[in-house]
Structures are given as C-alpha cells and as structure tokens.
C-alpha cells in the first residue's frame, strides 16, 4: 500500500543517478521490472586496499522505503570486517533507529528517511577506506585486520583480482 510513494522516489533517484553519476559507484536495476532491487557497482576507492577492484552489490528496498532502510549485499567476494561472509553489509546508517545495543556506534548515524542511495554509498565507500573493527560482521576479517595486516592485505588483494577477472 505504501508502495507508490516508494516507487516514485526510487525512480526519481535512479534517473538522477544515471543522468548525474556520482564518483565511486554506478547504479542500475537487477531486473528492469523491479524498482526495489538495484545493482550497484562499487569502484574500490583509490586510497584504500580495495583500489582497482570493481565490486558488485545488490541493494534491496523494503516496500515502506524510505521509512525503513534498504539492505545492501555484496555479490562479488569481498574481505572486509564489516561485510558478513554472506556479503551483507553491516553499517550503522542501514540500521533501524533504536537503542544502541553495543555502545560504540553513534546513534546519529542510523537510518533516517532523508537518506538517499547516494548518502548510503558515501558511507559504504568510506567504510572501505576505514573499516570499523569494533563491530565486525566478519570476525575473522576483523581479527586479521587487527593482528595480521599483511595477511589481511593479501586476502583483500585476492578479492580485488577476482573482481577484475569477473568484470
């Protein structure tokens, strides 16, 4: 029932992003008939370990978007403390508002209806540059990031290479 507002806002955003692309990512639909599922191609930021990589992710919007946040899931393999092994991105801006359960995420960074795909992606890209190993979704990656940077870098480099081959 809430769908029509969501559809209009998503169409508007998609058109805008295709007309005026934003640095760092590009956006399209997974399937032309479904405006609720986007395919995002994230370009590994130049000043990060992910430089040179092209990572595919799917952003899925709920019917009552923008009252509730979308979910973001990497389709390409990616090794990052805040991306689960299933590809789910765990970032505070995509969390529903509510009490802070762990005390180290700034509540002000949680989901708000004014957020756009662009503001989400800006946060995700900055997360690639600067992982948050205090609230990991991938505990092994976080441990490596903290304790064995060399191994972590090798792991990431492998994903970057794989993403280039798959492109």
């Amino acid at each position: 029932m809430a769908t029509s507002a969501a559809v209009l806002l998503l169409r508007k955003q998609l058109a805008e992003l295709q007309k005026h692309p934003v640095d760092g990512f590009s956006a399209g639909l997974v399937d032309e008939v479904n405006i609720f599922k986007w395919e995002i191609l994230i370009i590994g930021p130049a000043d990060s370990l992910y430089d040179g990589g092209y990572f595919k992710a799917h952003m899925t919007f709920p019917e009552d978007y923008p009252q509730r946040p979308p979910k973001l899931k990497f389709i390409s393999d990616i090794w990052h403390p805040n991306v689960g092994k299933d590809g789910m991105v765990c970032i505070s801006i995509l969390h529903e508002p509510g009490d802070d359960k762990y005390g180290y995420e700034k509540a002000a960074e949680r989901w708000l209806p004014v957020h756009t795909v662009e503001t989400i992606m800006v946060s995700v890209i900055s997360l690639l540059c600067d992982p948050n190993d205090e609230s990991p979704a991938n505990v092994d990656a976080a441990k490596e990031f903290r304790e064995d940077k060399k191994k972590f870098k090798r792991h990431v480099a492998k994903c970057v290479r794989k993403s280039q081959e798959e492109l």
Partner: peptide, 14 residues
C-alpha cells in the same frame, strides 16, 4: 540537540 533530532525526532515510529 542535533543527536536528539536524529535519534528521537526524525526517525519514524518513535
């Protein structure tokens, strides 16, 4: 005040 607005005012269902 800004934190209050972002956590107690702008989010839906609060």
């Amino acid at each position: 005040l800004v934190e209050f607005c972002k956590t107690e005012v702008e989010p839906m269902y609060l």
